[in-house]
Amino acid sequence: MTTVMNSAAASAECQPRAGQMFVMKCGGSTLAELPDSFYSDLAVLQANGVLPVIVHGGGPAISENLEKLGIETKFVNGLRFTTEEVLDVAEMVLAGSINKTIVRRIAQAGGSALGLSGVDGGLLKAKPVAASAEVGLVGDVTEVNVALIVGVLTLGYIPVIAPVGIGAGGQRYNINADTAAGAVASELGASRMIVVTDVPGIMKTVQGEKKVLETITVQQIEDMILTGEIYGGMIPKVRAAVSCISGKVKEVVIVNGSEPGVLGKVLSGERIGTRIVRMS
């Protein structure tokens, strides 16, 4: 009997807790390519009382639409140079097509979601970044309307947030999705962020075989970039994840969104993906 009870207790501990909140960051292109099962898992978590908050990007789609409209786009130190003209397109794509696609796919899977821009209800208040002279209308988050997010969750919806901010005098700002996600997670008091990508985590060659690192520190990431162990397209992925670590966010988990039940596995503490931890 004791064995049965212990097994039951262990099983319960390996389940996401009702009321457990998490913030998930995902690029718009990655979200669009995720299998239906990912959204079904998200809907199941919601039905079981877990409280997801989604912050998404959409860089490739913005670039594609700018090209179609004949508007020049360029990047300065990884940030898109943003004029009012570029911002019009960015807002259209982020708060429009991408945001509503995510909401629709969650609904098709049986969940309930509400799409929001950072402009709505002053959700993401912003100020110009320090390098605004070089990058234009790019913003840093100064305040998150936590009450609005909590209100949406209380009504039974998953908030799906597009990273466009609002500043003094009603000025809009293009906000990096990783920066926005980190600010949202920190203000909500979430200690963990989940970054959904198309890779299983950070890889390292061990005795001639590539393995996923279970845990890594920010400093170790920088060291691996310097030695060339992290290279190519993985560099922006890990640096984006690192940029989410701020305030109360002490770890970021990089996972492959196509892994069956990946969100539930992370929330229940299963060893999956790579955990980037802040040394404090």
Rank of each mutant, 00 (worst) to 15 (best):
G151V: 08
N176Y: 05
G170V: 09
I216F: 08
A190Q: 14
N145K: 06
I221Q: 05
G208C: 03
N176H: 06
L148R: 09
G167K: 09
G136C: 10
V146N: 07
E143H: 13
D223I: 08
G208Y: 08
V206K: 11
A183N: 11
G189E: 10
K204T: 11
S186R: 09
A183V: 05
T179L: 14
V218C: 08
A162K: 06
K204Q: 15
E134K: 15
A168Q: 14
G169W: 11
T205Y: 01
V144P: 07
K210C: 04
R192K: 15
G156I: 00
E222Q: 14
A183D: 04
V152F: 02
S186G: 04
I216H: 03
A133M: 10
A147H: 13
G151A: 08
G201W: 05
V138G: 06
I221A: 04
G167S: 10
L153A: 02
Q207Y: 06
A180Y: 06
E143C: 10
T142F: 02
A130E: 12
G136A: 09
S186F: 01
T142D: 04
M193V: 15
G139S: 06
I158Q: 01
T142C: 02
S132P: 06
A190G: 11
A190S: 15
L153K: 03
I166L: 14
I166D: 02
L155I: 03
V164S: 01
T215M: 11
L226T: 11
V146P: 00
K211Y: 02
M193T: 08
I158V: 15
V138W: 08
G189I: 12
A131R: 13
V195E: 01
V196R: 00
E143R: 11
V160H: 06
G165A: 09
D223T: 14
A131M: 13
L226K: 15
V164K: 04
K211M: 11
V212D: 00
T215Y: 13
V141H: 02
A131F: 04
P163H: 10
V184S: 07
V138L: 08
I202Q: 01
E143T: 10
A133I: 12
Q171D: 07
A185H: 11
M224C: 01
P200W: 07
E143M: 10
A131H: 05
V218Q: 14
Q220M: 08
Q171A: 14
G136Q: 13
D140T: 13
V196G: 01
I149Y: 05
P159T: 09
G208D: 07
V195W: 00
E209R: 15
Q220H: 12
I216A: 01
I221M: 05
V218T: 15
S191N: 14
V212P: 00
V144T: 10
G167F: 07
I158T: 04
A183F: 03
L213K: 04
G151W: 13
E214M: 06
V150N: 14
I149T: 03
G189L: 13
V196Y: 01
V135A: 05
T217Y: 08
K211Q: 15
A183P: 00
E222F: 12
G228V: 09
